[in-house]
Amino acid sequence: MSFLSIRNLSVRLKKGPSLLRRVSLDVAAGEVRGLVGESGAGKSMIGKAVLGILPPSIEVTGGEILLDGVDLLQLPPAQRRKRIGATCALIPQDPLTALNPSHRIGPQITDRLVDILGWTRPDAETRARELLAEVQIADPDRVLRSYPHELSGGMRQRILIASAFAAEPKLIVADEPTTALDVTVQKQILKLIAGMQARHNTALLFVTHDLGVVSKVCQKLSVLYAGMVVEDATVADFFAAPRHAYSAALLAATPKYTDPSAGLQPVPDAVIAAVQAEVAAFDKGLAHG
C-alpha cells in the first residue's frame, strides 16, 4: 500500500478560485514522485497540504490525505501535527530563509528529535553529527555551533537536508530544493538528496519545474495544470511517450542543451486552449455534480 495517498483533494482560496482540482496521487514507501507544472499550477500547494502548512487564506474543500492509511484531514490539529512531525519532513526551497537566524545550527537539527520525539539531548546531538557527516560537511562540530549567517547557501541546504532526514521520516517533501542555489551547487545537492533518499529508503515528493531533474531523480511523476493532474505516469513511460497533449508540449519545451540549434519550443497556444477547456469543463462538471 502507498505510504501517502491523496484522494480527490480540492483546495481553494477562501471563497475564491480553486487551486487544486480533485488531485489524486500515490507515493509508495521508498518511491520518488515528481510533481511538475508551471508556476501556479499547484505543485507546492500539494506539498503544503500534506505537511499541514497551507496558509490561513486557503481552505481544503474536499478529499483525503491518507498518511499510512490515516486521513490527516480528519485528525484534530494537535494529533495531525504530531503525526506529520514524526513521519514527514520538508526540504524547503530557499536555504537562506529557512533557518532561524537567531538559533545555532545544532538545535535546529535536534529540536524535532528532542521536543517531539522525546530523544535525550546527547543522543540527538550524536545523531546530528552523523547526519552532517552524511551530507558531507567536513567539520560537523564547528557547524553545529555556528549561526546560519556564518554558512554558505549550499552548506545551509545540506544542513536542511540533514535536518529533514534526522528523524528517519517515511516521507519527505522537497519543494524545489535546488531552485535557489547556484547552478554548480544544484547538481551536488540533487545528487545528495537522491543518495540520501536511496540509503534511507524514504518516500519523496519532489516538487520541481525541471523535467530534467525529474528524469534523474524520480520514478513516477504527476503533471499539473491549473491544479489538475493531467498526467500520472512512470518516468520511463512519460519520457518515452507522454499521453496528454499538454505534458507532451511541456516535455518538448524543455531546452535541449545537446542541440542548441533547436531553440526554445513554447507550449503551443492550441494546447493551452485545449487544457484550459478541460479545466473549465471540470469546473462545470463540479458545479452540476
Binding site: G52, I53, A78, R81, L90, T97, A98, D115
Partner: peptide, 25 residues
C-alpha cells in the same frame, strides 16, 4: 517566514512556534 513554516512541519504547535521561533527575531 520560511523558518517558522519549517518549524510547523516538525510538529510544533502554534504557541511553541511563536515563543521559540518568532519571538526573539
Amino acid at each position: 517566514l520560511d523558518y517558522v513554516t519549517l518549524a510547523r512541519t516538525k510538529g510544533y504547535g502554534e504557541t511553541r512556534v511563536i515563543l521559540r521561533e518568532a519571538l526573539r527575531n
